[in-house]
Design a protein around this nucleic acid. Sequence first.
DNA 1: AAACCGTGGCA
DNA 2: TTGCCAAGGTT
Length: 286
Amino acid sequence: MQQEIIDWFETEGRDLPWRQPDFTPWGSLVSEFMLQQTPVARVIPKLDEFLTRWPTPAALAASPSGDAVRAWANLGYPRRALWLHACAVTIVDKFNGEVPSNVDDLLSLPGVGPYTARAIAVFAFGGHEPVVDTNIRRVIARHNQGNADQGPPSTKRDLEVMAALLPSPELSPAFNAGMMELGALICTARNPQCEICPIARTCAWKNASYPEHVGPKKTVQKKYEGSDRQARGAVMKILREAHRTVTTSELDDCWPDKAQLGRAISGLLNDGLIELVADDSYQLPA
DNA sequence: AAACCGTGGCA
DNA sequence: TTGCCAAGGTT
């Protein structure tokens, strides 16, 4: 399986920005943050803008965190922008301005979890680690376990399974990236393209005639329309686009349910995504 | 462990 | 229209 994945990736893998030979580890870190739950197509233009403005950790660390949040625009989950800014500060203060290359140092950074730490170690530094994302978990569930879907994640078990599949160290980046790419392009959640899959011959799910999913299922996302998350999003949109302080009464217009709006504002204050500047006005963090 | 955290595209 | 999904992380 390993060599088939690697060969397929060499010929069919996309020329994504973070796969260019001159892409920096900082670029990789920024791209991985943006790619956490945001589709590739929406990340690409924002990544370019972000790296043009802040080409190094030191550059971002020298700007207010609110500028990072504003530049994040509508990518979603704006706490990622705050964490990325905090990463830049830590990298300058504790790692001499250079993105660290080993998993433990990477895991010490805010917003860097099991996936992102290993993705940086492997893709930016050529490390030999198991990278586990939703694509890889789906490929393994189908091809190796004969199941239709990956089910809920279990970090420890997932990492062990992927570690057992790794080829020799020098092939590790291509294999990890190839597995992700296969899940993104061929072994997709809906309508997988088994006819052109490089590992269809050995796929346990296909060879069992595509049985229904067995075992626990992924937990379903709560409805977004009318949710607290949407209310937070409405507040953040006002603050991002204002480029100045905004009063409580101005925020009143952005959401009909005042109790929910109150929860959104206090939650955002608690997260550090907005700041109180007077007793009734707010701004993005300085 | 399960809920929470944005936003937009697609079937 | 509604639900599912998207290179996750934190609590």
